[in-house]
Computed example of a mutant assay.
Amino acid sequence: MVKEAIDCIDAGTEYCPCKLAEYGQCLICSQCQGQVFCDCLNWKGVCIYQELHNNGYKAKEGRKTFDCNVEEVINNNNNLIIIKFKAPHKLVLDLVKPGSYIFIRTDDNHYFDIPISIMNSDIENDIISIAVEIRGIKTAKLLNTKANENIVIRGPYWNGVFGIKNILAQNNTKALILARGIGLAPMMPVIRKLLSQNNELQAVLDKDPFNVNFATELLEKYKIKTSENSLLDKGQLSDHAKVIIKDALEDGVTFIHIAGADILTYSVINYLNEINRNDVVLSCCNNFKMCCGEGICGACTSRFSGHRVKRFCKEQADPRNIFEGRRFI
């Protein structure tokens, strides 16, 4: 029997053990799941059960809420808004890593908080930048955001990208970035991390459905090869995208980061299967719905074969595994 590799993004951090451990549903620790033996699925160097015991069998204090001053607001035709705000230095440091996101409060009712990925975390000036696509009732309220006013956020959270261990494993190699739409925002911390590990990057950007590439200002700070092309055609991976991927692989690319909707990730995975390149390492955006960010509410859960339920606001996964064995009913 092969045990599935399971990883919790919060394991071993200052927020561990969390409410899941308190309620006997820890993703990692067998003893926190009510079993009598120690059999951690993915040990992070910290005994979660001991931490729970030392804390009186209660979860540690969760994420805090911050009132932050808005420095700048850029509105693009009321369908995209970029907000830059000043935040506490520790929070800015915590939000540098790939996959970082926060919840933004648009109403007095905290159940209406919106999960938004970090586009840039400037540790020199303590400025956080986010890009929000205006899609519904909650995001539309952000159009009222103005400079020099306060914005209420909750964080930090880190599971906005799947395949983080694959990103961290890339050193002195070649990587391809495929980004589409609002995926250009969470793409930036990934690019920053890959460059810091001395990787050679090529980024292919599809700005659809927007009329501007809102990541241009940040991309100009990095020396990477970029181009703008259509990645999807009528819900399928475009022929041009297939040529780009194939040429990149022939050029020695061994890692692809996909920043976009699930249909883009799914299409790229299928294409790699078609050309027998399952050896290519992947990472992608986490597009699951989120509400509490702590694995309790169930908004992020998905059912898989074998009666498995995964909480994707907490659980890290390889991009290929989030589609394999997934049940849609």
Results as ranks from 00 to 15, higher is better:
S129W: 08
I258K: 03
A140L: 11
R326V: 08
L205I: 15
K3T: 03
Q35K: 15
D233K: 05
R135Y: 10
S196Y: 03
A248R: 06
S227Q: 14
G181N: 06
F312H: 14
V309Q: 11
E324F: 09
I269F: 08
C284Y: 12
N199K: 03
P189M: 07
K146C: 07
T301L: 10
Y266Q: 11
V204Y: 03
E315N: 02
I263H: 00
T106Y: 04
N148F: 05
E200H: 12
F323A: 12
V161F: 09
L237N: 00
R277M: 12
C8M: 05
N76H: 15
G183R: 07
M1H: 10
N211L: 12
D247T: 13
K310I: 10
V281D: 09
D206M: 05
I137Y: 14
K138C: 05
L249P: 01
C285G: 10
L232F: 04
I102R: 02
T226D: 10
V309C: 14
I134G: 06
N144W: 11
L176P: 07
P189K: 03
N198F: 02
A175Q: 05
I137Q: 13
A185G: 08
L194V: 03
Q25K: 12
F304S: 13
Y23L: 14
L93G: 00
D239T: 12
N211H: 07
M187D: 04
G45S: 05
L142R: 12
G99M: 07
C29W: 00
H53C: 06
S267D: 00
S230K: 04
F328Y: 14
M187H: 03
S302T: 13
K64D: 08
P17K: 02
P115N: 15
S121R: 01
N276K: 15
I151D: 11
W43C: 01
N213E: 10
I118P: 01
D279P: 09
L27H: 01
D233M: 01
G155C: 08
K221L: 11
S227V: 08
N199I: 02
Q197P: 06
R180H: 06
V280E: 02
F112A: 13
L91N: 00
N78V: 04
L20Y: 00
K225Y: 15
V309D: 08
D67R: 13
P186F: 04
C285S: 15
V280C: 09
F112R: 14
Y49V: 00
N77E: 14
E217R: 15
K223Q: 13
S227R: 12
A241T: 02
V309W: 11
E61F: 07
C16V: 07
N54Y: 04
M1P: 05
L178V: 01
I118W: 04
D122H: 10
T254S: 12
L201N: 11
E72H: 12
I123S: 06
V152K: 14
S196K: 04
H53N: 12
K234L: 05
N287G: 05
I9T: 06
F103C: 04
R192N: 10
N270R: 10
M119V: 00
D208R: 01
N287K: 10
G12K: 02
D233Y: 10
D39G: 08
D122Q: 06
R192G: 01
W43N: 02
N278R: 15
C29G: 02
R192P: 01
Y266F: 06
S30H: 11
S129L: 08
C47E: 01
E228S: 14
N287F: 04
K97M: 07
V243D: 11
